[in-house]
């Protein structure tokens, strides 16, 4: 399996790509916090947030469709919020008769539901832009510089490094299982009972665990023999320049304006 299977980085040469990863991480988090902090029904502020997203998207040389297509990833979770439509007290907007039950949508419920969806939709898009414009190792360095404990950063970096290796291992296991007819056919006759299939899958998980555990041992020994002393070194200095500070300031100012827009109108 190739590294790019999991990588979400999109190579472009834009100002957004060149921005220091620390600035991007902090502004993304502030943007999300700002969305969550806005009151329900702050439509102008939400619109301003979306405009900001489109601006960043353009500056990063991505097409409108790129961001738009990927922006619905969190949508299935909206199911969890559907109930507010019916449970918030307010003026009835619409109601349906289902059997002996009446479902009534209130205006307050509708406003809250829409606000939750918009907050989530805007937030996920900024996170997508962060990942698409920042290489994963740079992201990890940013977290390190932002005082996330080195151990955690190292563990995540390690996981990223070995994801592809273990994914390959899984694909080998799955191929071996398919070759031995554990697949369920349409008539449901082949492939044993559901218990048997679960047992096979569980044994595969066990096998994968044993192989991973052994690999971590080998990797550790290899690292020790190359002078590992508990932390990973980097050759990238990651120095903030004037432009990075400027962008950090401008970004924060824009978010403050969005907040004012949301609370004052």
């Amino acid at each position: 399996m190739h590294v790019s299977t999991f990588d979400r980085y999109e190579q472009r040469s834009s100002a957004v790509h060149q921005l220091d990863p620390r600035v991007k991480v902090v502004l993304t988090l502030l943007f999300i916090v700002s969305n969550v902090a806005l009151p329900d029904g702050a439509w102008w502020a939400f619109a301003a947030g979306w405009a900001l997203l489109l601006l960043v998207n353009r500056a990063a040389h991505f097409s409108f469709g790129y961001l738009f297509k990927r922006s619905f990833i969190a949508l299935p979770f909206a199911l969890a919020a559907v109930t507010v439509l019916f449970t918030l007290p307010g003026t009835a907007v619409a109601s349906w008769q289902i059997g002996s039950h009446t479902l009534t949508v209130s205006d307050a419920g509708l406003m809250r539901f829409a606000s939750i969806l918009i907050r989530s939709w805007l937030s996920v898009q900024m996170a997508i832009l962060l990942t698409a414009t920042t290489q994963f190792p740079d992201l990890m360095h940013a977290l390190h510089h932002l005082r996330v404990p080195q151990v955690l950063v190292s563990i995540i970096s390690f996981m990223y490094r070995y994801l592809f290796v273990l994914a390959d291992e899984v694909i080998r296991l799955l191929r071996a299982r398919d070759a031995r007819s554990a697949r369920l056919t349409t008539d449901g006759k082949l492939g044993g009972t559901i218990w048997w299939r679960a047992k096979v899958t569980g044994s595969m998980a066990g096998q994968l665990f044993v192989r991973s555990f052994d690999r971590s041992d080998r990797v550790y020994n290899a690292m020790l023999s190359r002078g590992y002393r508990g932390h990973l070194l980097t050759m990238n200095p990651h120095v903030m320049n004037g432009r990075d500070w400027l962008m950090a300031g401008v970004g924060t100012a824009v978010l403050v304006i969005i907040q004012l827009l949301g609370w004052l109108t």
């Binding site: 563990i155 995540i156 990223y160 273990l166 994914a167 899984v170 899958t201």
Partner: peptide, 27 residues
């Protein structure tokens, strides 16, 4: 674990992630 923690936890995390690709057909 001392400095062994990083490779062990990191690779085990990759194991859990890769393990989520393991599925079995139910119906």
């Amino acid at each position: 674990l001392d400095e062994r923690l990083v490779p062990l936890a990191g690779i085990m995390a990759a194991f859990i992630f890769a393990g989520q690709m393991l599925n079995f057909p139910v119906a």
